[in-house]
Write a protein that binds this DNA or RNA. Structure first.
Length: 467
RNA sequence: GCCAAGGUAGCUUAGCGGCGAAGCGGUGGACUGCAGAUCCAUUACACGGGAGUUCAAAUCUCUCCCUUGGCUCCA
């Protein structure tokens, strides 16, 4: 039974899909005008694990993400780079998907591009106009905030507050907070991209409407979960609620709202002006995807998380502790000394208990830090038992399987089977190991240590075992 | 100003009414030719301050202090 925190109610609730075990999940995707950054990575890794766990728990998840490929920022950037907006959008979309692959984020079931849903968008705007929720000016079509009394229910604001601190509102709008559904733009040339015909003249959609047009197309007017970064609560998600609930007349648009916390860099918000903007590409030049994922999952998805090299190093060390155990298990399983103990049944019980604890943590609003903590508890016990030769191969095999299972849910590969080295490399390495072993037998410590140090410089770590 | 999220050992985080926990780290020891890994022990002033509710508060309520974010570009 999964419990999840619903931003709408500000409480943890028992998760129940509208229809059986089928989950309709929408997460706001990126605006593809630049490289994705580590904040995106945090959000999408979080939802990756959430979805993995839901599937693992028996739900059939239909996971949709939009790709915002018609935004003003894209036009501006394309102008700067003297390229076509669509080409730019496709290029960065490709980079986004590639980054997700590198991070081990599974593809969602459907990536929906805004530009490929223009008819749906126009249709939805039309409904809003017909029902009197939207009005046309000479600049565009706007949603009339005052007609939708629930406006602000997600972010806990009221319309008066929103109107007070607005500077220089557009006087052509009825209310200062009314947002654009359709932006009128003149068609300059025939080959111009990102401009479409509509009943309100040529132009392009506003920012919020693509998501509701897309979700209505694939999910209908009501679905299970809508997710995204914390920063999208206002105004984006408020606008979505207004659009969808006003046009369909059905409430609520979505049952559960899930928002991921921010990733800061050394205590500061990531921004281009501060110069602390880190792209996923840059991240992966320095850290492995596993370390970053482990770092992300070491904090609960709703909590703020602080990125720094010191903390990444801590994560790396923690992850190594898990890897070391796997290696040790593999070693024990390969060795000839067979320990046969009759405490297997104890182990089966213990592992079942740990498994239950792990899944309890995950059930509790996807509490990955608590789940990881159960892995460490297990590791401590197992290390002790291995150290005391108090565990059978049979138990070790089961133990390994369970850690792999945890790894699968968290999207971390604990298999330690990377075996993609060239054969020649392996053979040369074996030769080197053989020579060094001979040196050690002759107690030529100086030279054997040198070999080990040099290998270490090449990122190959050699660790001697007791003979 | 309004809204929101936080303040738990040196660091990073769980816990959110009933023995304060995990990882990273520090120190000493065992094992090892040394190192690494691991084990044992140990170190930790750890629940921002104050008041209240309760048999019982890190946990609930109020209040104050501090940090961060949002307030129509944002994952």
């Amino acid at each position: 039974m999964i419990k999840l925190y619903n931003t709408m109610t500000r409480r943890k609730e028992i998760f129940e899909p509208i229809e059986g075990n089928r989950v309709k999940l929408f997460v706001c995707g990126p605006t593809v005008y630049d490289y994705s950054h580590i904040g995106h990575a945090r959000t999408y890794i979080s939802f990756d694990v959430i979805v993995r766990y839901m599937k693992y728990s028996g739900y059939s998840v239909f996971y949709v993400q939009n790709i915002t490929d018609l935004d003003d920022k894209i036009l501006k950037r394309a102008d700067e780079l003297e390229t076509s907006p669509l080409e730019l959008a496709r290029r960065y979309e490709e980079k986004y998907l590639h980054d997700m692959d590198l991070l081990g984020v599974e593809h969602v079931n459907l990536y929906a591009r805004a530009t490929e849903h223009i008819p749906e968008i126009i249709r939805q705007i039309g409904v809003l106009v017909d029902k009197g929720y939207a009005y046309e000016t000479d600049k565009g079509v706007y949603f009339d905030e005052s007609k939708f009394e629930d406006f602000g229910k997600l972010s806990n604001r009221n319309i008066e507050d929103l109107n007070v601190h607005r500077i220089g509102p557009d006087s052509s709008k009825r209310n200062p907070g009314d947002f654009a559904l359709w932006k009128k733009r003149e068609r300059i040339s025939e080959e111009q991209e990102m401009i479409w015909d509509s009943p309100w003249g040529t132009g392009r959609p506003g920012w919020h409407i693509e998501d509701t047009a897309i979700t209505e197309t694939y999910f209908g007017p009501q679905y299970d979960i809508h997710g995204g970064g914390l920063d999208l609560i206002f105004p984006h998600h408020e606008a979505e609620i207004a659009q969808m609930e006003a046009s369909s007349g059905k409430k609520p648009m979505v049952r559960y709202w899930m928002h991921t916390g921010f990733l800061n860099v050394k205590g500061e918000k990531m921004s281009k002006s501060l110069g602390n903007f880190i792209t996923i590409y840059e991240l992966l030049e320095e850290y492995s995807p596993e370390v970053f994922r482990f770092f992300v999952l070491s904090t609960h998805y709703r909590s703020p998380i602080d990125f720094s090299s010191e903390i990444l190093h801590q994560s790396s060390q923690g992850l190594n502790r898990i890897y070391n155990l796997i290696e040790k298990i593999n070693c024990e399983l390969d060795s000839d000394t067979s320990i046969s103990l009759d405490n297997d049944s104890d182990y089966i019980q213990k592992l079942a208990a740990v498994r239950e604890e792990f899944f309890e943590a995950m059930d509790n609003d996807f509490n990955t830090p608590a789940a990881i903590s159960t892995i460490f508890d297990l590791i401590r016990d197992v290390n002790r038992d291995i150290h005391e030769s108090n565990i059978s191969k049979n138990s070790l095999t089961k133990l390994k399987a369970i850690i792999m299972e945890f790894g699968y849910v968290l999207g971390l590969d604990f298999s330690m089977e990377h075996g993609n080295e060239e054969n020649l490399e392996i053979e040369l390495l074996d030769l080197l190991k053989y020579v060094r072993e001979k040196l050690r037998q002759n107690k030529n410590w100086e030279l054997s240590d040198q070999i080990r140090d040099k290998l270490n410089d090449l990122n190959i770590s050699l660790e001697d075992k007791k003979v």
